[in-house]
Deep mutational scan, measured.
Amino acid sequence: KEFRPGDKVVLPPYGVGVVAGIAQRSVSGVSRAYYQVDFPGSRSKAYVPVEAPHSVGLRKAL
């Protein structure tokens, strides 16, 4: 896996977040693995496909 729990990442347009782990989510009846990204200071979460994280701009924070 490219990202691990605890990694600081950037996800446009949300900003800097932390990978909380990998979650299985069902979309249109198909279960897939997603990185769960939490954003400190907020209750917001984002789910990014493990198979294509760069397709939505997910990258490691510098």
Score class of each variant (00 low, 15 high):
19 V>W: 02
56 V>Q: 08
24 Q>T: 13
38 D>R: 13
8 K>S: 08
26 S>F: 13
33 A>N: 09
32 R>D: 02
50 V>Y: 06
23 A>C: 15
59 R>F: 06
50 V>W: 05
12 P>M: 09
14 Y>G: 00
12 P>E: 09
54 H>Q: 10
32 R>A: 15
10 V>H: 08
7 D>G: 02
61 A>C: 15
18 V>K: 04
23 A>H: 12
45 K>W: 09
30 V>F: 08
37 V>A: 00
14 Y>M: 11
30 V>R: 09
5 P>H: 06
19 V>T: 00
49 P>E: 05
53 P>H: 07
54 H>M: 08
38 D>L: 13
35 Y>Q: 00
43 R>I: 10
10 V>R: 04
29 G>Y: 02
33 A>P: 08
17 G>V: 02
24 Q>D: 07
1 K>A: 14
26 S>Y: 13
17 G>K: 00
20 A>C: 12
37 V>T: 01
37 V>M: 01
50 V>S: 01
35 Y>T: 01
36 Q>D: 03
33 A>T: 10
41 G>D: 12
15 G>W: 05
35 Y>L: 05
44 S>K: 14
13 P>V: 05
7 D>M: 07
17 G>W: 02
22 I>C: 04
25 R>G: 08
8 K>H: 11
51 E>W: 12
60 K>N: 08
13 P>N: 08
51 E>Y: 07
10 V>F: 14
17 G>Q: 01
50 V>R: 02
54 H>F: 09
55 S>K: 11
59 R>W: 04
55 S>R: 10
8 K>E: 07
6 G>M: 03
25 R>E: 03
49 P>M: 06
46 A>S: 05
27 V>S: 06
28 S>H: 14
1 K>E: 15
18 V>E: 04
39 F>H: 01
28 S>N: 14
54 H>N: 09
44 S>F: 15
44 S>V: 14
21 G>L: 10
5 P>I: 15
40 P>R: 08
21 G>A: 11
57 G>R: 06
1 K>M: 15
54 H>K: 06
3 F>T: 01
5 P>M: 12
37 V>E: 01
38 D>A: 12
39 F>S: 02
21 G>D: 04
1 K>D: 13
17 G>D: 00
60 K>E: 08
21 G>W: 04
27 V>I: 11
36 Q>N: 03
37 V>G: 01
38 D>H: 12
55 S>A: 10
32 R>M: 09
18 V>M: 06
30 V>E: 08
4 R>H: 11
4 R>M: 15
59 R>E: 06
12 P>H: 10
57 G>Y: 04
19 V>H: 00
50 V>I: 09
57 G>N: 04
11 L>C: 07
33 A>D: 10
15 G>R: 04
15 G>K: 03
8 K>V: 14
62 L>Q: 11
22 I>R: 02
42 S>F: 10
10 V>Y: 15
23 A>D: 05
14 Y>A: 02
38 D>Q: 12
38 D>K: 13
59 R>M: 07
16 V>P: 07
19 V>E: 01
13 P>E: 05
7 D>R: 03
50 V>T: 04
55 S>T: 11
9 V>S: 02
27 V>Y: 10
28 S>M: 14
2 E>G: 11
60 K>Y: 10
34 Y>N: 01
60 K>W: 09
46 A>K: 10
2 E>V: 12
20 A>R: 12
26 S>M: 14
3 F>M: 03
7 D>F: 03
15 G>F: 04
35 Y>W: 05
5 P>G: 03
4 R>G: 06
20 A>T: 13
7 D>Y: 03
42 S>N: 09
48 V>H: 15
8 K>M: 13
53 P>R: 06
11 L>M: 08
1 K>V: 14
52 A>D: 15
19 V>Q: 01
60 K>D: 07
62 L>M: 12
39 F>K: 01
11 L>D: 01
55 S>P: 05
28 S>W: 09
46 A>V: 14
39 F>W: 02
23 A>L: 15
12 P>N: 05
52 A>H: 10
49 P>K: 03
40 P>S: 07
53 P>D: 05
8 K>Q: 09
10 V>G: 00
39 F>T: 01
1 K>C: 15
32 R>W: 04
62 L>T: 12
16 V>N: 08
20 A>I: 13
55 S>D: 09
42 S>I: 11
25 R>A: 05
61 A>L: 15
13 P>I: 05
24 Q>S: 09
26 S>T: 15
60 K>T: 07
35 Y>F: 07
1 K>I: 14
10 V>Q: 05
22 I>A: 01
30 V>N: 05
45 K>V: 15
10 V>N: 05
32 R>C: 07
30 V>Y: 08
15 G>E: 00
54 H>W: 12
54 H>P: 04
25 R>P: 01
11 L>Y: 07
23 A>Q: 12
22 I>H: 02
52 A>G: 08
40 P>W: 10
40 P>T: 07
18 V>I: 11
59 R>Q: 07
21 G>N: 07
45 K>C: 15
7 D>T: 09
44 S>W: 15
24 Q>R: 11
16 V>K: 07
21 G>S: 08
1 K>R: 12
59 R>A: 05
14 Y>F: 11
34 Y>Q: 01
14 Y>S: 00
24 Q>A: 07
53 P>Y: 09
57 G>V: 05
22 I>V: 07
14 Y>R: 04
23 A>I: 15
57 G>A: 05
49 P>V: 04
30 V>S: 06
53 P>S: 13
46 A>T: 06
42 S>T: 13
9 V>G: 02
15 G>M: 03
58 L>V: 03
23 A>T: 14
13 P>C: 14
20 A>L: 10
16 V>L: 15
16 V>A: 09
9 V>C: 05
48 V>Y: 03
45 K>I: 12
57 G>Q: 07
7 D>Q: 05
41 G>V: 07
28 S>T: 06
46 A>G: 04
3 F>W: 11
17 G>H: 05
46 A>D: 00
43 R>F: 13
20 A>F: 10
32 R>E: 04
49 P>Y: 05
36 Q>T: 09
58 L>E: 10
57 G>I: 05
1 K>S: 13
14 Y>H: 07
36 Q>L: 12
34 Y>T: 01
52 A>S: 11
22 I>E: 02
61 A>D: 07
8 K>Y: 13
6 G>C: 05
11 L>I: 04
61 A>V: 14
56 V>K: 08
22 I>P: 01
20 A>E: 07
58 L>Q: 03
46 A>Y: 10
42 S>L: 12
33 A>F: 14
58 L>S: 03
43 R>G: 12
29 G>W: 02
48 V>K: 00
4 R>T: 07
29 G>N: 04
52 A>F: 10
49 P>D: 08
12 P>R: 07
62 L>G: 13
23 A>N: 05
57 G>L: 05
51 E>K: 06
19 V>I: 15
58 L>I: 09
16 V>Q: 11
23 A>S: 11
18 V>C: 09
22 I>D: 01
57 G>F: 04
32 R>Q: 08
42 S>R: 12
5 P>R: 13
48 V>E: 00
7 D>A: 04
51 E>Q: 07
5 P>V: 15
16 V>R: 09
35 Y>H: 01
49 P>L: 12
34 Y>R: 00
16 V>H: 11
53 P>V: 12
13 P>G: 15
26 S>K: 12
56 V>M: 12
15 G>T: 02
9 V>Q: 00
62 L>V: 14
58 L>M: 14
26 S>G: 04
7 D>I: 03
11 L>Q: 06
27 V>G: 04
49 P>Q: 05
53 P>C: 10
24 Q>P: 03
29 G>S: 03
50 V>M: 05
2 E>F: 13
52 A>V: 05
45 K>N: 06
59 R>D: 03
14 Y>V: 02
17 G>N: 00
33 A>C: 12
14 Y>L: 07
32 R>V: 08
32 R>I: 08
4 R>K: 12
5 P>Q: 10
52 A>L: 06
58 L>D: 03
20 A>Q: 09
30 V>K: 09
42 S>Q: 10
30 V>D: 05
20 A>Y: 08
9 V>H: 01
39 F>R: 00
7 D>C: 10
37 V>K: 01
35 Y>R: 02
15 G>A: 02
10 V>T: 07
15 G>H: 02
23 A>G: 05
62 L>Y: 13
4 R>I: 13
21 G>T: 06
46 A>H: 10
56 V>L: 08
57 G>M: 06
59 R>S: 06
24 Q>W: 15
3 F>I: 05
1 K>Q: 14
6 G>Q: 02
31 S>F: 12
20 A>K: 10
56 V>S: 13
34 Y>S: 00
34 Y>C: 04
40 P>H: 09
40 P>D: 08
28 S>F: 11
9 V>I: 05
26 S>A: 08
60 K>M: 12
50 V>H: 02
23 A>V: 15
33 A>Q: 11
7 D>L: 03
60 K>L: 14
54 H>C: 11
56 V>N: 10
21 G>V: 05
41 G>M: 10
49 P>F: 05
